[in-house]
Computed example of a mutant assay.
Amino acid sequence: MNNIEMKYNFNLEYFEKSADYVKSKIDFKPQTALILGSALGSLASDIKNPVEIPYEDIPDFLVSTVKSHAGKLILGELYGRKVVCMSGRFHDYEGYDYEQLVAPVRLFKLLGVENMILTNAAGGINTGYKPGDLMIIRDHINLAGASPLRGPNDDRIGPRFFDVCNAYDEGLRTLAKSLAKECSLRIQEGVYAYQTGPHFETPAEIRFLRMAGADAAGMSTVTEALTAAHCGLKTLAISLISNMAAGVNNNRVDGEEVDYVAAQSAKEFKKYLSSILAHMESQEDE
């Protein structure tokens, strides 16, 4: 047994413990999973007939350490769909190893989830963007270079080597774009650059990323999207451009601007997401 196997033995049975516990608390199968970023944390309060499960109660799960994150799983109905929602996500900068970050998405898969929506707050790199825009993620650049699928692979979960050309599902992106006219926020589509944080990128890194084709940068989403691609979950990811990245203008990059823009945009972002959820069933039937 090698060192990684000794540290983490993330086989199917390991994640079934989490799934079995959650299944014991509900009497339905969730269709869609939601992992909400800074701009949409309040969406969880719209879930009807919610079943709330603190992360620390779920066997073999992780615990959020970000103060603004509630740290609980919420299951119920949202805009006509059965959902499982993470109120608080996990990040590399919290001290977790990459391999541990597969836990939420693998739980979703074992609960029977069909598709997943990820949201985040991101810094705008594309000079045509402005704070308050929404960006449908078409592709990503993994600046960290690491993968949550590192280590021993259980073929029952997904293949050792897997394709990520459609990690951000084309059908779901087409649906989201078709509904853009229903949203008062500007809808963009672009490439998300991932870095681990918790510091923001340097101006030199942003210049490099712009030359590489990135449109926005952030500290989440990519590990979740990769895990979903590995186990066959369709993913839609949307960034709120909460600020312009370092060096794009002369403004200092800080969390206060992120929180302010997120709060100002939350109502319209929620309305847009509700429309996407309401139309998902027709998209799945095509």
Rank of each mutant, 00 (worst) to 15 (best):
M1V: 13
F10I: 12
N11R: 15
D27S: 15
Q31L: 03
L34M: 12
I35W: 04
L36A: 02
G37M: 03
G41V: 05
G41N: 11
S45V: 07
S45F: 05
P50R: 04
P54Q: 08
V66Y: 02
H69E: 11
A70E: 14
G71E: 10
K72S: 12
K72T: 09
I74S: 08
L78S: 07
E94H: 06
G95C: 12
V102H: 02
R106P: 06
L107M: 15
F108P: 05
F108M: 15
N115Y: 14
N115S: 15
M116V: 15
I117F: 06
A121H: 07
I125L: 13
N126R: 14
T127I: 11
G128L: 12
L134Q: 14
I136G: 05
I137S: 04
D139C: 09
D139I: 04
R150L: 14
D155K: 13
P159L: 11
R160T: 14
F162Q: 06
D163P: 10
G171N: 15
S178T: 07
A180R: 01
L185Q: 01
A193I: 02
Y194H: 04
G197Q: 03
G197D: 03
H199N: 14
E201I: 01
A204L: 07
E205L: 05
R207C: 06
F208I: 12
G218W: 03
G218N: 05
T223M: 09
C231L: 06
G232Y: 04
K234C: 01
K234N: 11
A237S: 09
S239I: 04
I241Y: 02
I241Q: 03
E257H: 02
A262S: 14
A262V: 00
Q264S: 06
K270M: 11
L273V: 02
S275K: 10
M280C: 02
M280L: 14
E284Y: 00
E284T: 00
